[in-house]
Simulated scan of single mutants.
Amino acid sequence: MFTGIIETLGKITSLRTEGENLHITIESSITDELKIDQSVAHNGVCLTVIAIEGNTYTATAIKETLDKTNLGSWEIGDTVNLERAMKMGARLDGHIVQGHVDEQGTCTAISEAGGSWYFTFTYNSIQGNITIEKGSITINGVSLTVVNSKEAEFSVAIIPYTYEHTNFSSFEIGTKVNLEFDVIGKYVKRLMRLSE
């Protein structure tokens, strides 16, 4: 489990395919604290560390992960939001994040607002995911609060610290992002369907 509070940015140094799998090597300031078999969220996607060498480590994404997330479009040199799994008993500063991306979203608008930024995203409503005003959403692994929730569209407000310490600073119109919708909301929605 994760919190959506990004620890650091990693830089992709190598991408290698093996069958339908993608081996991703990342240079990171936290590499020396990692161990084999550890879970790390990469742009919100939980992947297992399979190798460590110097200041880089490698994780593998399978086809299902590549189909559902933006990992398949990564290129060498891209920056990735990183978060290690939460420690039991630690503060939950963000919200409950599983590291299981529900779908991709697309950035459709960016506006500056006196030192902060508003980013608007659309997603595929056919999959049944929803947002609510002031509810939680995870974008590329970042725990955020929804503003301006609409059908298949929502916005988030980004403070300077988040802009500077995550890959939000690289977003453009058309950027594809990983979305994980609030797990509590997903369970409530499922229970309501079962009671119909």
Results as ranks from 00 to 15, higher is better:
residue 142 V to C: 14
residue 122 T to D: 15
residue 167 N to K: 08
residue 130 I to Y: 09
residue 144 L to F: 03
residue 164 E to D: 14
residue 142 V to L: 06
residue 159 I to D: 01
residue 166 T to D: 05
residue 137 I to C: 04
residue 155 S to H: 09
residue 141 G to V: 09
residue 153 E to A: 15
residue 136 S to H: 11
residue 168 F to G: 00
residue 116 S to A: 11
residue 138 T to L: 04
residue 122 T to M: 08
residue 110 I to G: 04
residue 105 G to Y: 04
residue 163 Y to I: 02
residue 156 V to M: 04
residue 153 E to K: 13
residue 132 I to K: 13
residue 113 A to E: 13
residue 156 V to K: 00
residue 143 S to P: 00
residue 108 T to P: 04
residue 133 E to V: 04
residue 146 V to I: 15
residue 148 N to Y: 10
residue 161 Y to N: 01
residue 131 T to C: 13
residue 163 Y to L: 14
residue 156 V to D: 01
residue 166 T to P: 08
residue 131 T to A: 06
residue 141 G to P: 07
residue 151 E to A: 13
residue 127 Q to A: 13
residue 140 N to V: 06
residue 145 T to A: 02
residue 111 S to T: 14
residue 127 Q to D: 11
residue 152 A to H: 09
residue 106 T to W: 03
residue 128 G to Y: 12
residue 144 L to R: 01
residue 149 S to G: 15
residue 145 T to G: 00
residue 145 T to R: 01
residue 105 G to K: 05
residue 111 S to W: 08
residue 153 E to F: 05
residue 157 A to M: 12
residue 169 S to P: 04
residue 111 S to F: 08
residue 149 S to M: 12
residue 107 C to F: 06
residue 168 F to H: 09
residue 159 I to L: 07
residue 162 T to E: 09
residue 158 I to C: 00
residue 114 G to D: 12
residue 158 I to H: 02
residue 125 S to Y: 13
residue 152 A to C: 09
residue 169 S to C: 13
residue 147 V to D: 07
residue 134 K to C: 00
residue 144 L to N: 00
residue 107 C to V: 15
residue 139 I to E: 03
residue 150 K to M: 12
residue 116 S to T: 13
residue 115 G to K: 09
residue 143 S to H: 07
residue 130 I to V: 13
residue 119 F to G: 00
residue 140 N to M: 06
residue 167 N to W: 07
residue 164 E to G: 00
residue 118 Y to M: 10
residue 154 F to Q: 05
residue 158 I to G: 01
residue 116 S to V: 12
residue 164 E to L: 12
residue 119 F to M: 13
residue 119 F to D: 00
residue 163 Y to E: 08
